[in-house]
């Protein structure tokens, strides 16, 4: 059984192909780059996706040395995400399904992150920190569903870092903004106090962004020290809420995924925290941590094997598709 997955919920366009045993046959990705100094423009990103998707699909098939006839199911991201971007993936999936007469499975994007992490990290029942430019959530399985134990009450952590980088005039042409900030932070030495905002198991970053933007304007501190202080603060917050979820759920595995999961400092902190509780830690490599088509293909396959498939009429996207909306019948209660 082979599944082809299409991911297009934000700035990444990805197509992946995976088989029943979790063998990765292709994982191709292209990224829409907004003009320097601005964020993702949903319509422009969707135009990028629409223009590139035929080639990305062909490239994935070529890499895997397969043709569409070999593919058994088509998976796509139903949501959450940016409407115009999601629609491109859904249209492409419908077109392939109709042309080649394949069943369709629309999947939940955050759950796809969790499931690819469980597969590659060989994890059974992790507490998951999902951190990216569009999402910040602590997810764990409980009573038949994935549930959000904590999340941002305003902007995602990746967005906070990106906007800081742009305000500082940093360029993300050569490396993702998070990586640029991480490299600067490695040379930071002085900690500048920044608000630390935790509310129960939730976090908030918008006040921190305002504060750091003001510090930036003062020009009293080096970019290295500001990057260091910002990273240390927001990551400490994320690790603390993950720790609380771990203690609360009494699980013994910690997984990090999403674009910000590429950050080595965040991974190191999570590892120390997990090990202090006797828990195992796993961080995905960037090709699988960042939005990708493979994770969509894999979740689609799991769900199809459990009897899920999405009739053509119901392949509408859902920008607000919640993690809790999905009945998880492929996992045992624990």
């Amino acid at each position: 059984m082979l599944s082809l997955g299409i991911e297009s919920s934000a700035d990444k366009l990805g197509v992946g192909i995976i088989d029943n045993n979790g063998n990765i046959l292709a994982n191709v990705r292209r990224t829409y780059k907004p003009p320097l100094g601005s964020g993702i423009h949903p319509r422009e990103a969707s135009e990028f996706h629409a223009k590139n998707i035929p080639e990305v699909i062909s490239e994935a098939l070529k890499t895997s040395k397969l043709t569409m006839d070999n593919i058994d199911i088509i998976s796509f991201t139903k949501g959450p995400g940016l409407g115009p971007c999601l629609r491109v993936g859904a249209v492409a999936a419908r077109t392939l399904a109709l042309k080649y007469k394949k069943p369709l499975v629309g999947v939940n994007h955050p759950i796809a992150h969790v499931e690819i992490g469980r597969l590659v990290g060989n994890m059974d029942d992790p507490v998951v920190l999902y951190v990216s430019g569009g999402n910040t959530q602590i997810i764990a399985f409980s009573e038949g569903r994935y549930r959000v134990f904590g999340e941002t009450i305003d902007i995602p952590v990746g967005n906070c870092l990106d906007v800081f980088g742009r305000n500082a005039g940093l360029s993300d042409k050569k490396a993702p903004m998070g990586r640029v900030i991480e490299l600067l932070a490695e040379n930071g030495t002085k900690y500048i106090p920044i608000p630390y905002v935790i509310k129960g198991m939730d976090v908030s970053f918008s006040g921190i962004l305002t504060h750091i933007s003001k510090l930036l304007k003062k020009k009293e501190y080096t970019l290295e020290d500001l990057s260091y202080s910002l990273q240390e603060t927001v990551f400490a917050m994320l690790v603390e809420v993950t720790e609380r979820a771990l203690a609360h759920t009494k699980k013994n595995e910690v997984l990090v995924c999403g674009g910000v999961a590429s950050n080595n400092r965040l991974k190191a902190m999570l590892k120390v925290m997990a090990e202090s509780h006797g828990a195992r830690f796993f961080g995905l490599e960037p090709s699988l941590a960042i939005d990708n088509g493979l994770m969509i293909a894999w979740l689609g396959l799991i769900m199809y094997n459990q009897g899920y498939s999405t009739p053509l009429k119901e392949t509408i996207i859902d920008q607000h598709y919640r993690v809790e909306d999905v009945v998880v019948n492929w996992r045992n209660e624990n």
Binding site: Y191, P193, Y196, E232, T233, A236, E240, E243, M273, S276
Partner: peptide
């Protein structure tokens, strides 16, 4: 004390 965070943040919190 939490070893995962820098001492400045740890002490302050």
């Amino acid at each position: 004390s939490k070893k995962y965070r820098i001492s400045e943040i740890d002490e302050m919190l």
